[in-house]
Design a protein around this nucleic acid. Sequence first.
DNA 1: TACATATAAGACAAAAAGATCCTAAACTCT
DNA 2: AGAGTTTAGGATCTTTTTGTCTTATATGTA
Lengths: 154, 154
Amino acid sequence: MAIFTAKQHTMFSKACEYAIRATIYVAMRSLQDQCTNLKALAEEIGSPVAFTAKIMQQLVKHNIVYSVMGPTGGFQIEKRRVHKIKLSMIVNAIDGDAIYQGCGLGLEACNALEPCPVHDKFAKIRDDLKQMLETTSIYELATGLEVGMTYLKR
Amino acid sequence: MAIFTAKQHTMFSKACEYAIRATIYVAMRSLQDQCTNLKALAEEIGSPVAFTAKIMQQLVKHNIVYSVMGPTGGFQIEKRRVHKIKLSMIVNAIDGDAIYQGCGLGLEACNALEPCPVHDKFAKIRDDLKQMLETTSIYELATGLEVGMTYLKR
DNA sequence: TACATATAAGACAAAAAGATCCTAAACTCT
DNA sequence: AGAGTTTAGGATCTTTTTGTCTTATATGTA
Ligand code: FES
Ligand code: FES
């Protein structure tokens, strides 16, 4: 029937996954005063080039990275801003805030006064996720990548 | 452009949200030795009837609930099984296990030996979520609903 | 200035998710 | 047995997500 087969719902959308990977890579390059062009970026994070272009446009609009057109152009982040960019900013720009603010069972809004059955248990996880996303900077993620301890593709 | 506008990626798919709400409601009714028919169920959890039918079919296939056809028929759970049904069983049946087993950045598989940049921070959240889903029974969620402390729709 | 190269933007296409509809099969009750 | 009710299952439709392609715009260099 092709419905309900081999689904794999993930924490973030594909677009958001690419966005986070892209930002980390651009950040690492930016810390070395290097601009990153689209083709190289997509290659390094293992994402489809044209789709990545769309995502980068969004990140530019949300002031997460800036872009330079023309030869030698590409995407970059001001060095002094790298540590100010948190994961939550990227997730919010691409996926919205439902993952760390919304009701786990999809009710109109999470409301502790009229909680859904999973509210207490879910809110704990969700708040931890929110805390993690809001405190984790791209800087710390980029440095791990720079020293070869972490990977952006398999 | 209609792309990248007002997205709200959630923890679970819509189908999974309905599945969890439905199972909790059917469980509550089952604890009162009552069968629940599709129309009433969809009404109580605020879900589209036909779509809910598809979801219930999946839950039946995965032995989470059983169904009875014909008048006085509907969905039910054996009383003694209610406490054995964990949230993880429903999530796994509908959304798969990626949410609590997969890599947060969408890499082929989560691998601590070749971790993605967010692995350490993400694994902590994900393992807490897994633990929560695997230990939370539908029984405890249904009892809160029964005494009117929790709600399945707004 | 001309040319090459890079991103921006919009249209378009394919696949998956979300939702509906219709017919078949099972069951209850008269 | 027959009528009415309820779930099962397949086909179909719509919307969103994912992804591609083509053209415009900006910029560095000869
Ligand atoms: S009401 Fe559902 S998570 Fe708070
Ligand atoms: S490798 Fe990405 S979460 Fe483990």
